[in-house]
Amino acid sequence: MDNVSTEVKMESFQAFQSVIRKSENALANMAQKGSNTTLLDKRLKALYIGLAMLEAAWNLKPHHYSEADLTEARHVLTGLFPLLEKMEGKSKMGSPQKTLIERRIKAFELAVQAMDELVKNSN
């Protein structure tokens, strides 16, 4: 995690902040319509934890998440990879959409790596 460029770090923070914002808006809309929000709640928690792990790894910010929280968040984030990769494959080369998805994948990979390192170092 130490050899990540400042640019990739910034893009990763922005990717998480963007998907969190979109998820919060979707959650509000779903709740207003009375839709089941269980899956989105779970994903949003994983996104918050992923962002916190990057902040812990790169900005040395403390976090309050348990090992169980990290395990669950890791499972949720890695479960999103096939969907993101499918979306990436359908995006046009060089398009803003493809760039956004590539950055999101990289951010999720780095967050999972940070989780793995944190769990390994706590044992």
Rank of each mutant, 00 (worst) to 15 (best):
A31H: 07
A31P: 00
A31S: 10
A31C: 05
A31F: 05
A31W: 04
Q32M: 11
Q32E: 15
Q32K: 13
K33W: 02
K33I: 02
K33A: 11
G34T: 10
G34C: 08
G34K: 05
G34R: 00
G34D: 06
G34M: 06
S35L: 12
S35G: 07
S35K: 13
N36S: 10
N36T: 05
N36M: 06
N36V: 04
T37P: 04
T37N: 08
L39I: 12
D41Q: 14
D41T: 09
D41C: 06
D41L: 09
D41H: 09
K42D: 10
K42F: 09
L44Y: 08
L44G: 07
L44T: 06
L44I: 01
L44A: 02
K45N: 06
K45S: 00
A46F: 01
A46R: 00
A46Q: 00
A46N: 00
A46V: 04
L47C: 04
L47K: 01
Y48F: 15
Y48H: 13
Y48L: 11
Y48A: 02
I49F: 07
I49D: 02
I49C: 05
I49L: 06
I49R: 00
G50Y: 02
G50L: 08
G50T: 07
G50P: 06
L51H: 07
L51F: 07
A52F: 02
A52I: 04
A52P: 05
M53I: 11
M53C: 10
L54R: 04
L54Q: 03
L54M: 11
L54P: 00
E55A: 12
E55N: 15
E55P: 10
A56P: 09
A56T: 10
A57D: 13
A57K: 14
A57N: 14
A57T: 13
W58K: 14
W58H: 13
W58T: 13
N59I: 13
N59Q: 15
L60I: 11
L60Q: 15
L60R: 15
L60E: 14
K61D: 14
K61V: 03
K61Q: 15
K61T: 10
P62V: 13
P62K: 15
P62M: 15
P62W: 13
